[in-house]
Every structure is written in structure tokens, then in C-alpha cells.
């Protein structure tokens, strides 16, 4: 009788633990969706409305679509965004990448850009990822101040090379996509 009790208790406890963890995971998820994801969708929704509703969209389409539908144009985009003066400014919250991405998205949706260019475009809009966050990111990894001093310019210069390189790799990886 006692062993049975103990077994039941162990089972109950571990099931409770599992349920608790999944429930907590659900709570965290809803929290992040309500606090971060939905507000951002509202923000982008307003921008999409203004851009599409006022006709700026057509203007942007005429500028962005040709740029995004050739390897040269995407490379140009990535080089500009990766400039060491611009990249830390364009970084915060990835807002620029998200807005350009959404505007490009509407062009893909309208069929103005070949869908296979979506892959290199994903890298072309984002060579500045994390450039605004280098000192904080390095401190999170417990780096010395001297390392931060070297690390910031090293990463910014590295992006000048790896930003366009990523676009080229993605361009070649996009062969056969949506064809």
C-alpha cells in the first residue's frame, strides 16, 4: 500500500511538473505575442496603409523593385546598409530591415519581383544585424573593455565584406527556388 502511494505521488508530481512547464511556456508565449508581436504588426500595418493608400507605394515600387530584382541592385543595397557609419544607426530593433522587408514583400506579392529573389533579398536588407548592440552583446559574454574596443570596429568592417558576400551566397542558393 505504501509503495503504491509513493508511486502515485511520484507520477503525480512529474505529471504536474510537465503540465506546469507547458502551461508556463504558453503564458510566456501569449505575453510575447501581446507585448511585442501584435504592437509591431499594428505599427507595420499603419506604415503599409500609408504607403499603399497614398500612392507612395507605387513610387517605392518603381525604385525598389528594379533594385531588388537583380544581383547588382541587391549588392548595392547591402553595401549601403553595411557602411560602418550607417550600420549601427540602422540596427535598433531591426526596424529598418523589417520595414524595407515589408515593402519589398508587397512587391513580391504583386509579382513585380521574381520570387526567387526573396532569398538574396532577405540577406540584402539585413547586413547591419546586431551592429547597434555590439558593446552590450560583448558584455553579456563577459568580454574585457579592450576586447570591446577592438571588437566594435572589427565587426563593423567585417560586415562590409560578409554583408555583400551573404547576398552572393544566397543568390547562388536561390537557383531552383520557385521555378
Amino acid at each position: 500500500m505504501e509503495t503504491l502511494n509513493r508511486t502515485l505521488e511520484t507520477i503525480g508530481r512529474s505529471v504536474g511538473g510537465v503540465v506546469g512547464k507547458i502551461y508556463q511556456a504558453g503564458r510566456d508565449t501569449i505575453d510575447v505575442v501581446l507585448r511585442t508581436v501584435l504592437p509591431f504588426i499594428a505599427f507595420v500595418g499603419l506604415i503599409v496603409g500609408i504607403v499603399q493608400g497614398t500612392g507612395i507605394g507605387q513610387l517605392l515600387a518603381d525604385t525598389l523593385a528594379p533594385l531588388a530584382s537583380s544581383l547588382g541592385g541587391l549588392l548595392l543595397m547591402s553595401v549601403i546598409i553595411a557602411l560602418p557609419v550607417l550600420s549601427p544607426v540602422l540596427g535598433p530593433g531591426a526596424v529598418i530591415a523589417q520595414v524595407i522587408g515589408t515593402l519589398l514583400g508587397t512587391q513580391f506579392g504583386d509579382g513585380n519581383i521574381e520570387p526567387r529573389f526573396a532569398l538574396p533579398a532577405l540577406f540584402a536588407i539585413n547586413p547591419q544585424v546586431g551592429c547597434d548592440f555590439i558593446p552590450v552583446g560583448l558584455s553579456l559574454g563577459e568580454a574585457e573593455p579592450e576586447t570591446v574596443e577592438i571588437g566594435v570596429p572589427a565587426i563593423l568592417f567585417s560586415r562590409m565584406i560578409t554583408g555583400p558576400a551573404a547576398v552572393i551566397i544566397a543568390y547562388f542558393a536561390s537557383f531552383g527556388l520557385y521555378s
Binding site: Q98, I100, T102, G105, Y178
Partner: peptide, 10 residues
């Protein structure tokens, strides 16, 4: 939306 922006269009 770095991903979803373009993905929504696709």
C-alpha cells in the same frame, strides 16, 4: 518581420 515582411509577399 525581417522574415515575415518578405514572406507575407511570397
Amino acid at each position: 518581420f525581417v522574415w515575415l515582411g518578405i514572406a507575407t509577399g511570397i
